[in-house]
Every structure is written in C-alpha cells, then in structure tokens.
Nucleic acid binder design. Sequence first.
DNA 1: AAATAAATTTAGGCATGACTAAATTATACA
DNA 2: TGTATAATTTAGTCATGCCTAAATTTATTT
Lengths: 223, 223
Amino acid sequence: MLTHAAEDYLKSIYKLQEKGGKVSTGILAEFLDVKPASATGMIKKLKTMKLVRYERYRGVTLTAAGKAVALEIIRHHRLLELYLFKALGVPWDGVHEEAEKLEHVISEDVEARMDEYLGYPTADPHGAPIPDKNGVVIQTDSVPMTELKDGQSCVVAEVSDSDSALLRHIGSFNLYPGTAFRVVEVAPFEGPFTIDIAGQEAVIGREVAKHIFVEQVQDPDNV
Amino acid sequence: MLTHAAEDYLKSIYKLQEKGGKVSTGILAEFLDVKPASATGMIKKLKTMKLVRYERYRGVTLTAAGKAVALEIIRHHRLLELYLFKALGVPWDGVHEEAEKLEHVISEDVEARMDEYLGYPTADPHGAPIPDKNGVVIQTDSVPMTELKDGQSCVVAEVSDSDSALLRHIGSFNLYPGTAFRVVEVAPFEGPFTIDIAGQEAVIGREVAKHIFVEQVQDPDNV
DNA sequence: AAATAAATTTAGGCATGACTAAATTATACA
DNA sequence: TGTATAATTTAGTCATGCCTAAATTTATTT
C-alpha cells in the first residue's frame, strides 16, 4: 500500500500537470510546502514504483497507474468535501482542510455509501469535478471571471478551494457554484468588478475575481 | 501534537488498565501487536511527555493528562462507529476497523456535528459507553452471559468489538445491545446456552457467550 | 562561448517507530 | 537461598520522509 505522503505527491503532480505538462521539482516542492531535495527523494521512490516518469533535471509526469491513484485520491477528497458540507453542515471554507486528512484513510465501502447518499454527484462544494469510480472526470469549460466585460451574464462554475479566508469572502457575496450574476461595470485600469447578483449590487476585487471561474457567459445583445 | 502511534498506545493502556491496574510491557505489546522492545521505547517517550507513570520492569499507568487523551480518542472512536452505523449504514462488524483509522484525524468540529446528529448518544453500536466531551464515562454494571443460570432473563448490554467474524455471528442471532432474551437451558459441563429471543430459540456456544455482557438480570421467581 | 545565475541533485543528518539479538532484572521453584 | 525461567530493557538496524549544505547540471546573459 502507498503511504499518505506518496498519495499527496501523486495528487499534487496531477493538479500541476493539468495546467502545464511536465512538472518541475521546484514547483512540486513549493506546492507541497517541502524543500526541493525532499521532492527529489520522493520522486525517485515513485519512479521505482512505476507511478511517474522521471529523468533528472527534466521534471516528472504521471504514468497511467500514477494518474489512477491521483484521481482516486481526488475523488475521495471531493466526495468527502461534499459529504461534510451537505450531511454535516460543515461550512464550505472548512471542508478542504478536513477532507485533506480524511482522504487517505476512508475506505472504498464508506466512500460508496457517501456517494449513494449524495446521489452520485459530479461536483464538490467549490464546483470542482468529482471523478467517477473509473477515474473519468467531467470537465466544464469555464473561464476566469476576470475575462468578463460590461453587461455579460454568467453562472459561477468553480471557486479555488485552497484559501479559507478567500472562500469566506466569496461566500459572503453568495457566489457559490450555480449562482448567476451579471457584470454591471468593470472599472478601468485593472480595477474591481461591480456585479448584480439576485438584484443586489456587489463589488468584487480583481484579485478575488481571479479565483472565480464562470460559464454560460452571455452577451446582453444575444439575450 | 501527538502522533497516531502515541494515541494508540494511550488508548490501549487505558483499556488494559480498566481490567487490572498496572499494565505490563508484554501485555501492552501483545494488545498492540508489536514487540515488547517497541512498547518499551514508546512508553519512555510517553513518560517524558508526562502522559504515563513508569518505572522499568514495573509497568505503566496513565497520568491524568494521559487518561484525558485516551478518553478523547475513545470518544472519537465510538462516536464514529455509531455515526457510520446509523448515518451510513455500515454493518456493525465493519465500523470498528473504519473508526480505528478515522479516530486520529477527525476534527473536534466534525465530531461535534456528528454528536448533534446522533442526539448526544451514550453508547456505540456494540454497547460500549461513549465518554462525554469532558471525559466522563457512564459505566453500566453488566456481567458476562456465561454467569447466567437456567430461566434467567436479561438484556444485552455490550458485545466485544474486536473480532469481526464474531460480531457477524452474534448479529445473526439479533443479539444487539438492548435486545432482551431468556435462558432456556445451560448445558452441563461448560456447555452451550439455549436461549429464547423474541420467541425464537437459539443455541449460543460458551466461547461466544464470553463476549456478550448482559444487565437487568431477573430470576423467573422475581417476576 | 564563457561566465554567472538558477534549479536540481547528492550527501549526510534527524525524528519516528518498528524490528532482532543480547544483556539485564524479576519471579518461581526446588 | 540459589538457580532456572520468564519478562523486560538496552543496543544496534532499518524504512519513511523530512531537513541543510555542498556539488552538479541547466539556463541565461553578455
């Protein structure tokens, strides 16, 4: 069986690989909050297990087996997040931290029971897709909110889940996945966004907007 | 923060201490399925943390601080067992193994939410008492089923939870905590027990009966 | 193309927590 | 009470996974 650390490395490599092919030792180490030397050590171990491809100084990629493990852990994580949110009422800014610990110890049996309870969901409370039992991920094509122009309408698809304070802030505007809003005005010179959400106006800073991803964007003319 | 291993040691010392004061290195090692030398090492570490009292060759006992940790872990374990059983329908012979892993990683917040969901219960699916947040345990005075005589009636109080196959067997007779039954006949020469449970007769072997604890024992004359 | 800077790897160390084998202490029995 | 046996502890090893510091390789810049 794999150690928790190995699972965390594979999960991280997967996530970093998603946005940019090969993953460097340095990026991986930073993402995991360890020193590069530590990452090198684990990468070598994962290579002997045939879970990653690796040439020194050339970065890592997951093998099919490594990707399967990564997706299994991500599935655990996201199902746990949604379960904690829906079944136990844990606030959405708290579920990530909790799931981070539970994802390594939950059994397949308990996971299947949570999955059934939740009605076989496809997204977690932050809108991230939940891979199915076979590791198939349904990808939505969302864009960062920062790309929106005046007058456009859209629906929140996903919010990055790493920063708990950011999530509380976003939650205070009710910008949960599935929520629709319209851009009233984009301030010039990289300024904040004024939006209309269920009749209420709100001002969203650009740094915050970078972490909100939207879909079903519609121009006002097309309506 | 304590390691999972340290928590397991404290929990084990507590359980062994319950039935017999001081705990020897050998008994503890056997209980934890490690070698005595390993137990000695951890005991020394726990002593420096002031969680146990220890003199070499003289056995261990928990300090107040050590007992508090042990009870906290036991509370996690038993609340988790009951939650898995009631909320997710995990069969009672599976909850122990699962809780064994989860007890070390569950947060106080999630635990409090499970506690609320369950209505602040006082016993787990095997009838073992759940310590409250302050570490107070409500002890029931149950006796092993092997002490019962012909004609006595009683209610199942607790069943030992360590052996999953045994639990399935006991479950097949519906001998869950809270279930009442009457002894029809105790076979002579340390033989099996024939009982009447909800009108059905069942034969319970002596080895199995040793793991079933009962209370509210009543002689047929006293009824 | 050589020199400098940045990234990565190697080497060596530390804590945890298990193990085996050998030494020590305690217990039991004659 | 002395000796054999059982229990326990000490000493030394191993795997994990992190660290720092030094060496190496790659990338950049002039």
